[in-house]
Amino acid sequence: MDAIILQILNGLDKGSAYALIALGLTLIFGTLGVVNFAHGALFMIGAFCAVTLSRILTLSRTTIDETQTDFLGNPLKVEVPYAHDFFGPVVGDALIDWAVPLAILFSIPVMLLVGFVMERGLIKHFYKRPHADQILVTFGLAIVLQEVIKYFYGANPIPTPAPDVFRGSFDFGAMVGFEANQIIYPYWRLVYFAFAALIIGAVFAFLQFTTFGMVVRAGMADRETVGLLGIDIDRRFTIMFGIAAAVAGLAGVMYAPINSPNYHMGMDFLVLSFVVVVVGGMGSLPGAVLAGFLLGILESFASMSAVIDLIPGINQVIIYLVAITILLTRPRGLMGRKGVMED
């Protein structure tokens, strides 16, 4: 029993990332009808927002401390972050420690901007072109974004730690009444899951309970009629693109402590997220979220040693197997609407 709970928990963080990326992907597909292969790159840019902020905060000036000497007897050079100068040592250190959560605030405007520029500058011109062209141009864009990041940040993963408070693990099993030391779970993964749930909830609430969201939903159902009613649906869809980009970016920011950001993390997640969207059903938001968590958890079950002993290699292919099965038996995906890209 505790093994099962442990696997479910392990699947949650990856599942959350899948769900967030897939949510953005399917949002873009549902509103604009565009297949965005550059969505993984947005996730990666988000992660690098966290890296950038933590680098900005740790920018330092070098001073010579006369009171201390190094092992050669020379006066010791001490790096003092500018944050100390501006905010004092206590607040400054706290800021540096909390760089990743702070990057959330930093990344939202960045990602919205990136999203707007992408939609207005590039994607807009591809609404009328075939899906293959959309895939190709966004694939090209993904390569470009990835290489730009690689140019500025190098090819190696950059460790970006979570705040001190959330480092380490805790005994989840003991908390909910199982034996102690059976279910150990890192704090940050729990934070990530909670964060993902919050974002997903916020996106759904935004679409469900605001006038803006209502118009967007109406536009998803029948774009032409909404346009005929005198509503500038294109502008709203552009904003939705920005929001989708921001969701992917936020997923990336918070994922930075789990997996050190590197320039190809976007591509790694993209392939799987597409599979998630297809399993959930193109254009279905709840489907994307459900499929994201489902596949994340399935993947973690498949990597249990008992399962691997039974069917070797299953952990590597389970997601693709599920996707193939779903695509062949239920073309619409789990929760896809009728008539949306069924062939």
């Binding site: 297949v35 895939i135 392939v271 193939i324 890209m341 062939d343």
Partner: peptide, 12 residues
Amino acid sequence: RSGIYFSILTLA
């Protein structure tokens, strides 16, 4: 399947 689904299937 055809279209994007075909792409995803071959990719998978």
